[in-house]
Amino acid sequence: MAVKNLIDGVREAMHEEMARDPRVVLLGEDVGIRGGVFRASEGLVGEFGEARVIDAPLGESGIAGVAIGMALNGLRPIAEMQFADFIHPAFNQIVSEAAKIRYRSNNDFHVPMVIRAPFGGGVHGALYHSQSVEAFFMHVPGLKIVVPSTPADAKGLLKSAIRDEDPVMYFEHKRTYRLVRGEIPDGDFTVPIGKARTVREGKDLSIFAYGLMAVFAEQAALELEKEGVSAEVIDLRTLLPLDREAILSSIGKTHRGLVVYEANRTMGAGAEVAALIAEEALFELDAPVRRLAGPDLPAMPFNTVQEEHFMPNPEKIVHAARELLAS
């Protein structure tokens, strides 16, 4: 087992799956000779050739739509959106087509494809290189949505996504690419879609998060521990379908819940987690569920002070946890 970056997990998963299965292809802007703008596909074109590592024309609807056609005809495409912020032109193809093809054809057709998209802020990406778009797609049955926060999960979840028979959206937080390091098990392994990960166990409150926020939640829990607070951290990992059992069983243990996400607060992933707890576990609660999220603004500003104010961070999580414990 070796310690690696999160982005190594992404690259290794694609590399191993392309070597294992000739049906797997990668298409996206600059994924070939450039290896992707974040280097996620570095080396792949040299090994698998331009026919399977495809530098797509610059149009996101085209990338998604062509990938759907490939999936309909026996391939296993990985479609890369250069930034999640640029996924919106592909919304129709993803939502009207990929998500509905199995359903509308009464199971006659299906779309085994992965859409990878770097998301999230805290990198001076400003309005159009910082967005968290997962909530748009959480509203769409027919899709699955995963977000890794460790190198091992990055690899194992991407392998599961590639092998899945339905369209999977794989959001990778761009700040975690080289910030988060960890061990990746040797050999072939997968991480199941639909299962949350208990990052650390605790008894005083549960912090639910995903992506970079799961990393920050763990850091916050270490800080809280110094104050004698035992925080359980649950990395949701899959946003669609949510791991209801993991969420409810954690609440059953700690009786207090804090949901952390950096997307706009209103109608974000945290709203669904909070609603689930309210519907299924209200009488387990010692305090109302709290959400710590990005503010309801059109987007994240470029300048340092406003960007920092937008992003949740470990200090803000600690503060929110203290408030929750005091309520």
Binding site: G65, I68, L72, Q93
Partner: peptide
Amino acid sequence: TQVLHAVGIAYA
């Protein structure tokens, strides 16, 4: 939408 699917099908 189907016009793009035709392209992907032909590619495959």
